[in-house]
Design a protein around this nucleic acid. Structure first.
Length: 550
RNA sequence: AGGGGUAUCGCCAAGUUGGUAAGGCACCAGACUCUGAAUCUGGCAUUCGUUGGUUCGAGUCCAGCUACCCCUGCCA
């Protein structure tokens, strides 16, 4: 792992800082499901710790009870575990530190660095100034320490209504950095907290809580996204003001969040997709949520490999989704067994095969890892409709009238007759097999250009196959319009009734396969004893499709 | 307009004291192939947002300019 953050860590170590080891944290707010963008952060934080022989905490940044819920603390843990990271016994909640935060706030007041303000929210906003004009000081800014202490104590005790008072840091209303213009650090909100119940009426703001929770946990490197760069001066101000040792206290380092082409990563928009029913739920295989990717069939290894490959830097960038797809293909190519399935069946009758004959052919499960199974071969089979063309171009080396093709693991067949219905559509092919060409046999050596997959009509099982495409076909995720719903790909889900070889009968949810020549698939949890359901993870690379386009 | 950032191939991204542009994805060409997959081979930035300057020599130093991103929640 080499990135600029790792280099900073090494520089710190070289400078004699952080002699107790490196300690990072992944600090999600439990207000939504983790998505691929969070995976980057998870991999970075846990990866940095692992790489430096340190530790990474899981910490729920739950300082705003109005937006958070236990539903999310559960799913977040499940997703991180699934990725393969372990926080040991270091699962923390910012809310566990509310008592300490309060004490630090009191300390700040005692040092004359915080005051209770009773300006309304609107007034505070007006007093804050603008980007180009300085703010002005609140009339309550210069209360005595005693008065501030008394008021803050009473805020905690519930003597004042919600929103009537706030605690503010006393810094500089004229700072060119708006975050330093006396930021609010405590507000009154009578909301039941998912973790602390009704213990508190006042809640700390992120800016105040974050540096403290990092310091409390002895975090050395607090990694966050770019938009917090402006907040770093306050992060440092707070810890310095409270007397934390500059050589051991945490330091904040920012990196660019992940953006992916064809992918929605806005929490709000993802929620809209779920709530308005444009997808089946948070774990819909089209969703970029980790639970969605999991159901789609992406593997932890692929996602971690992806996060490693995209790197970590500070420039806003949009990674091409093909990078992610490459990573799953690479993993699944290595690890998924191969099997034959036909998505769009065309019946083929092999006229020189006996009607009652069933031949069990040996088929390898994986070109490199080996293993084998039996595949029944019968007089009537189905092939992929796409694998036959009546007026085939020279470059088409699959089945055509009078042409030959190899049936994978079986025989070379020759197309003798094309049968059509009254509408002129091809409904059946009559072919003959070359009995000397049996795969693996002594005389199987005859070379033929094309090889296609097939399935026995008598023994094939039916299966529901769900083919997915991007929710966004045009690449506009960066500046998605409000009505992005209208731009959703109407073909993001296509359901097919497919036919599949019987060897998969006893398969289980989450098992990956490569359907020969079609792509990688995974068994969906909707699968029951009498209904198989597969999701297509990703198709195979298809150079024929490119040739066809020309 | 004030502050904070970023600008290296179509997309990510290395490039640490200035010494003459890694790698991956994508793409293209070919080999191989009982998956038009995989694999293998080769190709793919005289140029680093831009303009000047310093220097024997600059993506790396200096100055100016430009573009884009973030910041005026009692959100995180």
């Amino acid at each position: 792992m080499i990135n600029f953050i790792q280099q900073e860590i090494e520089n710190d170590l070289k400078a004699g800082k952080y002699t107790n080891g490196i300690h990072t944290r992944f600090p999600p707010e439990p207000n939504g499901y983790l998505h691929i963008g969070h995976a980057k952060s998870v991999c970075l934080n846990f990866g940095l710790a692992l790489h430096n022989g340190g530790l990474c905490n899981l910490r729920f940044d739950d300082t705003n009870p109005t937006k958070e819920d236990v539903e999310f603390v559960d799913s977040i843990q499940e997703d991180i575990k699934w990725l393969g990271f372990d926080w040991g016994d270091r699962k923390f909640f910012a809310s566990d530190y509310f008592g300490k935060f309060y004490d630090y706030a009191v300390e700040l007041i005692k040092r004359g660095l915080a005051y209770v303000d009773e300006l309304s929210a609107e007034e505070i906003k007006a007093y804050r100034g603008t980007l180009t004009e300085p703010g002005k000081e609140s009339p309550y800014r210069n209360r005595t320490i005693e008065e501030n202490l008394d008021l803050f104590t009473r805020m905690k005790a519930g003597e004042f209504p919600d929103g009537s008072k706030v605690l503010r840091a006393k810094i500089d209303m004229a700072s060119p950095n708006i975050n330093m213009r006396d930021p609010v650090i405590y507000r009154i909100t009578r909301t039941t907290h998912h973790h602390t119940g009704d213990d508190w009426l006042i809640y700390p703001m992120y800016d105040f809580a974050h540096p403290l929770e990092d310091a409390i946990e002895n975090i050395t490197h607090s990694v966050c996204t770019l938009e917090f760069e402006d907040h770093r001066p306050f992060y440092d101000w707070l810890l310095d003001s409270l007397g934390f040792d500059p050589n051991s206290r945490p330091r904040q380092i920012e990196f660019a969040r992940l953006d992916l082409t064809n992918t929605i990563t806005s929490k709000r928009k993802l929620r809209q997709l779920v709530e308005e029913g444009h997808v089946r739920g948070w774990d819909d295989p089209r969703m970029p949520t980790l639970c969605g990717l999991r159901r789609r069939g992406f593997t932890p290894a692929a996602i971690k490999d992806f996060c490693e490959r995209i790197g970590v830097a500070k420039s806003n960038s949009v990674v091409d989704i093909s990078m992610l797809e490459h990573c799953v293909r690479e993993d699944l190519n290595e690890n998924a067994d191969r099997v034959m399935a036909v998505l769009d069946p065309l019946k083929v009758v092999l006229t020189n095969v006996d009607e009652n004959s069933v031949e069990y052919l040996t088929a390898e499960n994986h070109p490199k890892r080996g293993g084998s199974r039996f595949v029944p071969f019968t007089r009537e089979i189905f092939i992929e409709r796409e694998d036959f063309m009546e007026d085939a171009p020279k470059k088409f080396f699959r089945l055509k009238p009078g042409g030959e093709v190899r049936l994978k693991h079986a025989y070379i067949i020759k197309c003798e007759e094309v049968i059509k219905n009254s509408a002129g559509e091809v409904v059946e092919l009559r072919c003959t097999i070359d009995p000397t060409s049996k795969s693996g046999g002594a005389t199987a050596g005859r070379k033929i250009k094309g090889t296609i997959h097939w399935v026995s009509a008598k023994f094939a099982m039916s299966a529901e196959v769900r083919l997915y495409d991007y929710l966004l076909t045009t690449d506009a995720q960066g500046n998605l319009p409000e009505d992005f719903i209208a731009a959703l790909n109407p073909n993001s889900l296509i359901v097919k009734q497919a036919l599949i070889e019987p060897s998969v009968r006893w398969t289980g949810t989450g098992t990956h396969y490569q359907f020969l020549r079609l792509g990688y698939f995974v068994v969906d949890p909707d699968t029951t004893a009498d209904k198989l359901v597969f999701n297509r993870v990703v198709g195979l690379k298809d150079t024929w499709a490119k040739v066809k386009e020309r």
